[in-house]
Design a protein around this nucleic acid. Structure first.
Length: 212
DNA sequence: ACATTAAGTGATT
DNA sequence: AATCACTTAATGT
């Protein structure tokens, strides 16, 4: 799929032709491989990404390198957080890693504000995106606060399967432990339990999610 | 065959 | 749910 086609496909129904043209003109295509870091904590961002395909996971991280997964960003999405970051010239409070191979269109900061006034659809898009992100964050908080570890784990696997469009997930227990901020041993034990409940199938370096 | 890495388990806090 | 200590299994060289 060409960049133009992907743009048309995921954003065509949102934006008017003139805006699409502008995006095409000023957007810089960026391809990242799975596992690559897109944004590091403390960096200042100078463009806002529009996801064309693939998925990105957004993590919080403390000084000691402890991680906690916040949410996934999928194709057709943007992370509106970067919008506020760009405008205020603030430093990023999060780390973003490509969950799958991903293509993004990077829009330089300058255009963001101009388009806000110029295009109603752009304004809508940014606002909706903010809202969507906010809801996702609330859901994440709910999950953290009210769900037990085994439920969190299963939910994480289901989310992961969803964004990668594959019911088989290729990860180690250790990596999951990092995402959920727990220990490998706990992940192993709970996965075993969930497997016995017939919801997943385990093998080395991969987990098949049966209960979607 | 040997080393390395991933996963499983019992016991303790 | 976390941590330790140890075992077992899979994989790479």
């Amino acid at each position: 799929m060409t960049t133009t086609e992907a743009l048309q496909h995921h954003y065509g129904y949102l934006f008017e032709p003139e805006l699409l043209e502008e995006i095409k003109k000023v957007g810089v295509l960026k391809k990242v491989q799975q596992g690559q870091t897109l944004m590091q904590i403390g960096e200042t961002i100078k463009s806002m990404p529009l996801l064309l395909n693939g998925a990105v996971k957004v993590l919080r991280e403390d000084e000691e390198g402890n991680e906690l997964l916040l949410y996934f960003v999928e194709k057709g999405d943007t992370c509106a957080m970067t919008f506020s970051c760009c405008m205020g010239d603030k430093k990023s409070g999060i780390r973003a890693v490509a969950e799958t191979d991903t293509e993004l269109l990077m829009i330089p900061v300058g255009y963001l504000e101009t388009w806000m006034g110029q295009y109603k659809t752009w304004q809508r898009f940014i606002l909706d995106s903010y809202h969507a992100r906010m809801m996702e964050l609330m859901e994440t908080i709910d999950t953290l606060a009210f769900l037990r570890m085994d439920e969190r784990l299963l939910k994480h696997l289901q989310d992961k399967a969803k964004v990668t469009h594959d019911d088989v997930i290729y990860v180690t227990h250790q990596e999951i432990a990092y995402d959920l901020h727990t220990s490998r041993v706990v992940v192993s034990r709970l996965l075993k339990k969930i497997e016995n409940e017939g919801k997943i199938a385990l093998s080395r370096n991969q987990i098949k999610v049966l209960d979607l």
